[in-house]
Design a protein around this nucleic acid. Sequence first.
DNA 1: CGTTGTGAATGTATTCACAGCG
DNA 2: CGCTGTGAATACATTCACAACG
Lengths: 192, 192
Amino acid sequence: MYLRTLDAAAGEGRSTISSSAIARAFGFTDAQVRRDLACLGQTGRPGVGYQPVTLAARIRKSLSLDRTWNLAIVGVGKIGAALMGYPRFAGGGFRVTAAFDADPDLIGQDIAGTRIEPLSQLERSVREANVDLAVLAVPGPVAQSVATDLVNAGIRGILNFAPVRLHVDVPVQPIDLSRSLEQLAFEVSSTA
Amino acid sequence: MYLRTLDAAAGEGRSTISSSAIARAFGFTDAQVRRDLACLGQTGRPGVGYQPVTLAARIRKSLSLDRTWNLAIVGVGKIGAALMGYPRFAGGGFRVTAAFDADPDLIGQDIAGTRIEPLSQLERSVREANVDLAVLAVPGPVAQSVATDLVNAGIRGILNFAPVRLHVDVPVQPIDLSRSLEQLAFEVSSTA
DNA sequence: CGTTGTGAATGTATTCACAGCG
DNA sequence: CGCTGTGAATACATTCACAACG
């Protein structure tokens, strides 16, 4: 989140930005911002503020975003296909280098410059293409089994769109669209 | 999250489930589960556990999920189009009743049973179709302006896929795919 | 028994408030 | 001055541990 505002500030040509200015952009407090940034060590200058460009670079380094991560799209249904051309991935150090599906009609097709391969090719292609992370967009019932295969193939992390909790020993970042909608509905009826 | 496990337990025909069983499914503690459920009042029976069906119904009521919510998809690019047929929305009390885009080539097309209308029709159609919530999947630069229009048209909440913070006075649920990937990358390099 | 519901204890996150610095 | 970095204070969340209950 900090990267977004820092990049925006840098884009506007600002050479400094204060903790309270950053806080205002998000709706939390200046003390929170300083506390968060403190874990990077001394980064701001008293009386002046923070340097967007320098600070952003430092955050990128801390988050290991100063390299390129190779992605595999696993499950090229509507959501998987939509993500294959997602421009914000390419802009942020992420690159789709492989795609897999079970559907014979999809296999061999080219989407956004990547050829769709059968799931049987998973292990071999993941290693060949040096894939780091997988975007898992398969139906819930098969998600766990595919996830296990992915980890065996050497995947290091999973962005999981399937509505099930995965039991694997790599980091998983779940994205549960239904749950987000449900939470939204709850907040709406609470603030009524 | 509780609904997912409770529904699963009900589906397997279980008539009771204990706090520790629920906790195991998620990886947190039994005390946490009981504390969370306590806010619904007395729901379980000592020595026995919780009734999946009854409890799920009670949670649905508390979250206002015991009704149908009408959705508008705003921005029918790849992601917006993918969500129009998303089966898990329909299964959970959400129904797409309108869709809008700025692109003249898309307007008039039918996707998953809903006709795409021009953004100029927004206000009128939102009222006619009784839309409650909007799924905002437009490019970042125009997101704020479209969001403002949506609120003026009477929308009560926004599921926001655009990578910007929206300043509106209705609840917003952001889904930032890049940020989730970045967090995943960070976790992967931390556990290395 | 086994399991809930909840006071009390602990742990963690956020905010306050101010010394210190350019 | 204005603003950071951080001890101290506060608020919040989680866990412990046990009485109560069928």
